[in-house]
Design a protein around this nucleic acid. Sequence first.
DNA 1: ATATTTTCAGAATTTCATTCCGGATTTTTG
DNA 2: CAAAAATCCGGAATGAAATTCTGAAAATAT
Lengths: 159, 159
Amino acid sequence: MPRTTDTKGLDETDRKILRLLRTNCRLTTQEIADQVGLSQTPCWSRIKRLEEAGVISGYVAILDQAKVGRPDTFIVEVNLENHDDEKIENFSRHLQQLPEVIDVYLTTGEFDYVIIVAVDGPEGYETFLRKKLLKFEGIKHTRSIYCLRRLKRDVSPMI
Amino acid sequence: MPRTTDTKGLDETDRKILRLLRTNCRLTTQEIADQVGLSQTPCWSRIKRLEEAGVISGYVAILDQAKVGRPDTFIVEVNLENHDDEKIENFSRHLQQLPEVIDVYLTTGEFDYVIIVAVDGPEGYETFLRKKLLKFEGIKHTRSIYCLRRLKRDVSPMI
DNA sequence: ATATTTTCAGAATTTCATTCCGGATTTTTG
DNA sequence: CAAAAATCCGGAATGAAATTCTGAAAATAT
């Protein structure tokens, strides 16, 4: 078995690379190599390996939520009237299309869904709720929470 | 006033660029230029302008949550016993340090905080809750929600 | 102890980002 | 309405970084 394979297939060097790319994917391979104690080539191969293995699933630009016109965040909890597979799939598709919807979790407990929404002010939220979310047939009940502040958002978990 | 400035300082070309970079920041300026109908140079200048204006706040790699050892997601809602500024700051700092904590929202309503947590199984969550979250003095009450599935996660809102 | 596999580093190549320049278009000013 | 200024664009040249190629060192297995 190769040296780089521990329980999860990642050795400490891989993790170091991931910790760097997790917050800044514009570092050059040379800069990464320096920080993890390798030269360019093996560092580059490792990154490629991590990409092909799907450990790194993509590279994205982070946009300032306020500066693109969605300064306010709400959390909506939702219950559907019935829970057959088709209904759930339809609701999921509905949410995918809505630009205000950032995150969607299918949950256990009091509610079926927890949805994070980014809008422009309470007016923006009212419009979203009445004209978009509640247009979907079969919503039994919702509860809205206003977010005063977002204290943390990690695109990927720290490893 | 320059042509590229509308109500929010972004014209349609800027938005097209942002829509591309939002999901893939590894596109070359040439590829972006082709898709938005510009040549390399002006396209590159626009991207730089968006970076300097802070509309683009960074570039990151997205890691597969399961493949880095945190396949399961929980939502914890938290109430603190008292709400003076110092306590809130301390709790925020505490959460920043915890690798399991992905998102933290300071909220109105029934709870003070909504926290998204990534862990390895129920055991991982129990450990997180008892050994880490509840080590913080001053938590009055928590409620945990298990996430069956994450149906959507946009790093940045669609614009 | 030897063969095999894996990992590494250095140099060469290719691709891309970045800069520089001049021309066209739009907006502002007289 | 005309002239001046500012803005935006595209093409070519430069520089930097990604990627490929080669061979050596280290680790593992037989």
